[in-house]
Computed example of a mutant assay.
Amino acid sequence: MPPWMPSQDSLPMQHDRSLSEYDIAVIAAWMEAGAPSGEAGDYVEPEAHYNLAEVRADQILQLDEGYMPEEGVDDDYRCFAFTPDVDVPVFLTGYDFLPDVAAQVHHGIVYLVDDSALADITRNDGADGRPGWSCYTGTGVNSSREEFVGTWAPGTLPTLFPAGTGYKVLPDDIFIVQIHYNLLQGRQADRTAVHMQYEAGDSDLLKLATFELQGPVEIPCPTGVEGEQCEREWAIQRATELYGENWINFRPDHLLNECGQTITDYADNVGEDATTHCDYDIPLPLTVLGAFGHLHELGKSFQLELNPDTDDALMVLDIPAWDFHWQDRYQFQEPLQVTFGDVLRMTCNWDNTLSDDPRYVVWGEGTRDEMCFATLMVIDPRP
């Protein structure tokens, strides 16, 4: 059974797979007794505690031929465009992201863009003689409407959106699937697939939208590790050379400025326990249905908290023991209502001693870089 990462301090979640205190005590007592075998005749099959969502494959987004990731790099971000197989508007009500070569698929994102992106897609797609196009930090195309409708990272399960909701998809829209290939374990042709489930566009469904949150990443070298690679400016120069102009919105000073901070706010950060946070002012009343957090392999913990440092503080999502291999898009049992004037704080915590090549780490696209990132699934407030 996949582990359940949110703590009991989080909002109550749908599909909660956590063990009860009684279950934990039974397992602990069994282990303390030496894990004895029971009598085969006494076995009673347990009731199903959790069933995986079954996503209907009304359309499958998949390349006709495998994509061979770029040679000579550790990380390759590639985007692929797919046209919705619909003649009338529909709602996307679920998806299942199925990595082909799982060892090299770090994460995937499904974007929905309108046809204003068609010129850029036509120009970029296959321009280097290979399927798709390179796309660090987003889709790499301009569009008047871009929606983040699906995400996958190790541990993400098949996803059905909350009952009565979906993302509106028009016949002229375009899906862009961005896949981050991490190639430290090798390089193979990949045909990752995404199953898409639709409902009729004239259904009485509420339209979904996604809010994205980014926070600073400032992770010093562990105590006792010294050298040029432990300098912040070295880390910034490295990321600039790797990611170029596309990285501009994730430059460390830009992220700090967006969060109303400076680097001096993190003067006491140490590599063994590096923490950053960002407070977001809620701009209008919103109905929030779920949340997703994302760190990389140095992650220790992740939190989203509403109105921190007040009497009304509410922990939305608390993952106290981060595991890169078990990430999911969590849905609340009851909608969370937030309004203008509320503050949402995202806090990320890392341990740089987990790295086999310690250096100062800033926001970056590679698996050995780090992120402090979240999405909120909300009822679309736009008409």
Score class of each variant (00 low, 15 high):
P2K: 12
M5I: 08
L11V: 13
P12E: 14
L19S: 11
S20I: 10
D23I: 06
W30I: 12
A33R: 14
S37C: 06
E39P: 07
E45M: 15
P46G: 11
P46T: 11
H49I: 11
V55S: 06
G72Q: 13
D76M: 10
D76R: 11
R78Y: 11
F80G: 02
A81M: 07
T83W: 04
P84R: 04
D85I: 05
D87W: 12
D87Y: 05
V90R: 03
G94T: 12
G94R: 09
D96H: 15
D96N: 12
P99N: 03
D100P: 02
A102L: 11
A102F: 06
H106E: 13
L112Q: 01
D115L: 00
L118Y: 12
P131V: 07
W133Q: 01
S134P: 00
T137A: 11
G140V: 09
V141M: 11
S144P: 05
E147F: 08
V149I: 14
G150T: 10
L157G: 05
D173W: 02
V177G: 04
I179D: 01
L183M: 04
L184P: 01
R191L: 10
V194K: 06
V194P: 02
M196T: 07
D202G: 00
L206W: 03
E212D: 05
L213F: 13
P220C: 10
E226M: 07
G227D: 09
C230I: 05
E233W: 06
A239C: 09
R251Q: 10
P252Q: 02
L256P: 05
L256Y: 12
C259I: 14
G260A: 11
T264S: 15
D265S: 13
D273F: 12
T276Y: 10
C278P: 07
D281K: 07
P283Q: 08
L289H: 11
E297V: 15
L298W: 02
S301W: 01
P308F: 06
L314G: 01
L317N: 06
A321N: 11
W322E: 03
W326N: 03
Y330E: 03
F332P: 09
V338F: 14
F340S: 14
R345E: 06
D356N: 12
D356H: 04
D357F: 05
P358Q: 01
R359G: 03
Y360F: 15
V361M: 00
V361R: 05
W363S: 02
W363C: 07
G364C: 07
E365F: 05
M371T: 08
M377Y: 06
V378M: 09
D380S: 08
R382G: 04
